[in-house]
Nucleic acid binder design. Structure first.
Lengths: 226, 226
DNA sequence: TTATAATGATAGTATAACTATTAAAAATAA
DNA sequence: TTATTTTTAATAGTTATACTATCATTATAA
């Protein structure tokens, strides 16, 4: 028996659902691997097609262009993190404990999950950390937003912000703090690996424990009732 | 009489110092305007050359490529913010007051300064907000870092982190908090303008007051001695 | 089995990101 | 002031990217 998680994403993100065919799943799988390896700028559909022994034209039948494919991958990740949070907080009452699990889920998202056979979670997380914000730092962000391309991220943030408000209803910026937790998590892993003078934490051998401790420290200070 | 601020940047960032010639200053001036208008991806040296009535080849004599030009602009901005902070905190003793001025300087950086005749600060800030992180989110970040391309940012962060430690020597993550102040400042202005559901603040007509208040709120909570 | 859809193979266009060469103009030094 | 050097402009060319179009082939579904 095997369980397969099916992540559902906005239909506008693709021309043909990549989850429904071998070629589609290959596109997802190998685009993650290639982008994680050579970076988003050097990545293109020709290289991807060569890797999966298909053609550029075939890849274009699934995704409008590489920018939208990136948004797809990022949305997939956000949905996956939301899924992890939901199952891990299922029986938890205490909101502070819930937030702890949320923070831990950012880290846990790097563990490979056999229920997602065509996604290497560890590589995908690396991609998110180094390329993720390029998904929404584009000149046409408003049009893309109108098409609902960022809904998954917004829903995830809303979920976290609600927990923040539960912990301390008087805290004035629950949404900003929720987005900040994500951004900090990604940024400081990146800084620790590449620009260590921009952070206080270390991540030896991709052990993100210090990042987790830091985020909880920030949460405690910010959400203390004083 | 006129005062002209000369920002000094790492020599590795350019092939010929753009501050030393009319063409060079034109490159700086118009690259800011064009990138702020059409975004970094659509920007290229041909469009820039057309705008300043020069040629692609001439632009290439100043900058290796558009990525390095972006780092130059971003570094220029960081140096400028550092300069603003220094003159505005000159006679201030109280570190909490200093941090308030630092936070205010992020906002103030958008005011046009006649002492920098070839830089439109307001446009440059918009560029930093929407494209800034692309300067260091590149596959060759380590090599660029080795060449000292990000020193200006690091120095600025160090200066802010020192103030943070002055306010509360027991605070465990002064550097992370300093970088976070910058990132939050930029991100939440961007979110307020493009993805409002990712923040709690509003920036009507580029009035960044709410962002300033939020950052000070975070600073107070985080640096309170408890 | 036939129709329909998905994929592959191939070709072509416009633009980007450079590099090279030579001539003209501008700056500077003798 | 002229001669020399440096900078810029004009032009052309190369390789790669980001697509689009067409048609043949293969898989799938009715």
């Amino acid at each position: 028996m095997s369980v397969v998680i099916n992540i559902s994403l906005n239909e506008g993100l693709f021309l043909r659902n990549p989850q429904d065919s071998v070629l589609g799943r290959n596109i997802i799988k190998h685009s993650i691997l290639i982008i994680a390896e050579i970076g988003f700028e050097a990545f293109n559909f020709k290289k991807l097609a060569q890797e999966i022994k298909s053609t550029e034209a075939s890849v274009y039948r699934y995704f409008e262009n590489k920018q939208v494919l990136l948004i797809y991958l990022v949305s997939w990740y956000w949905e996956y993190v939301a899924f992890l949070i939901k199952i891990n907080t299922l029986n938890i009452e205490d909101p502070r404990k819930k937030l702890e699990i949320i923070i831990n889920s950012f880290v846990f998202a790097a563990l490979d999950n056999p229920a997602t056979p065509y996604v290497d979670e560890s590589k995908l997380q690396r991609l998110i950390i180094s390329e993720g914000t390029k998904a929404y730092h584009t000149i046409d962000v408003d049009e893309k937003n109108d098409k609902g391309f960022f809904l998954n991220y917004k829903e995830l943030i809303k979920m976290v912000a609600d927990v923040v408000s539960e912990i301390n209803p008087n805290f004035k910026y629950p949404i900003a703090f929720a987005t900040n937790l994500f951004e900090m998590s990604n940024n400081h892993i990146y800084f620790a690996n590449h620009l260590p003078r921009l952070t206080d934490v270390k991540v030896p051998k991709n052990n993100y424990e210090e990042v987790e401790i830091m985020l909880n420290y920030f949460a405690d200070k910010l959400l203390a009732d004083n």
